[in-house]
Simulated scan of single mutants.
Amino acid sequence: MTGSAARIRDARPAAGVSSWPHDADHSPELSIGRVVEELAEEFPAISLSKVRYLESEGLVNPARTGAGYRKYSAADVERLRYVLAEQRDSFTPLSVIRSQLDALDAGHTPTRRRVAQVVSSEGQTVSLGGRRAIPASDLADLTGVDMDTLERYSRLGLITPDLAGYFPARCVHAVTAIARLECAGVDVRVLRAVRQGAERSADIIDQTVSSQRGRGRGADRERARARAIELGDLFAELHREMLTVAVSALSDERI
């Protein structure tokens, strides 16, 4: 990773500076609009609302003027650049990024999320690299789920291969979660409703960003893609919070 990520290897707190990057200017002099301008070239989909959202998630902590206006430092900009790059390049969840920043704040090198994984398939070493789709054999190796179970998940409509029998690389996480739920006693047939709900959310996101995607220019497509990822994070957050409320409402007798 370039920019701020290149400086994380040996980040040590400077005197009086508690947040990373420790060697950057922490003087709060930038408005939120200026921060967006600073980041827009590298992250075209950045917006005022995105910066505020990352603040609400505890990933950046700008100063406030007496009138309540946010003021950011050069260090804050670097933190935001780190967060946005992790989301874009590795699809890293915000909770993981927050832990990474906590490690950096303490002067440690964080455990980085690895995108490429090396697995064995039919005796051959296979690197996922940047592949978007993987064969069922690699999916089984990555998840520890046997081929019969993958076929069963596929018949149930929980995962779907393409015409060549390849699965989206992101299915690794889905299959792992499905297998853990099954081990916990959940009848995986009911999980079809979860996938249907996810697809309905994806339809809403698609409708929201379609106007940007429809212009056809490369920059517009990139903005639409980044916006879709951002909205996906928000939908996932909403689902998690609603599920927490619903589970909390269950009586002891029903549990």
Rank of each mutant, 00 (worst) to 15 (best):
I46Y: 03
Q207H: 10
A133F: 06
R112D: 10
E253Y: 08
E237I: 01
E199D: 14
L250R: 11
W20M: 01
G107S: 12
V209C: 08
E86P: 01
L54Y: 13
S251N: 05
Y166R: 15
G197R: 10
P161C: 08
R79E: 07
H239M: 07
A184S: 13
G157K: 11
A133S: 07
E55Y: 04
L80F: 01
A15E: 15
R81H: 11
G66E: 13
S49D: 14
L234F: 03
D252W: 04
E86V: 00
R215P: 03
R213D: 11
E57C: 07
Q196H: 11
R240V: 03
A198T: 12
A236W: 00
A202N: 08
E42I: 00
A169M: 12
A246N: 04
L231N: 05
I255E: 04
L238D: 04
P62K: 02
S18H: 07
A226F: 03
G16F: 08
G66Q: 06
R132V: 08
T208D: 08
G232M: 08
Y72W: 12
S251W: 02
Q117C: 05
A106E: 14
I178G: 08
R213G: 14
T2R: 15
R34T: 14
T125N: 00
P21H: 09
S4Y: 11
R223P: 08
A198N: 15
N61M: 04
G216P: 05
S95V: 12
L39P: 03
V209S: 06
T2V: 08
V17Y: 05
E57Q: 15
E222F: 00
W20P: 01
E182L: 00
L39C: 01
A164Q: 14
R34Y: 06
D252H: 12
D138K: 00
A164T: 13
A136F: 03
G165V: 05
K71C: 09
D146S: 06
A174S: 11
G123L: 07
A177G: 09
S95P: 05
S154Q: 14
A67W: 02
T109N: 12
S210F: 04
G123A: 07
E222G: 03
E230N: 10
S99Q: 15
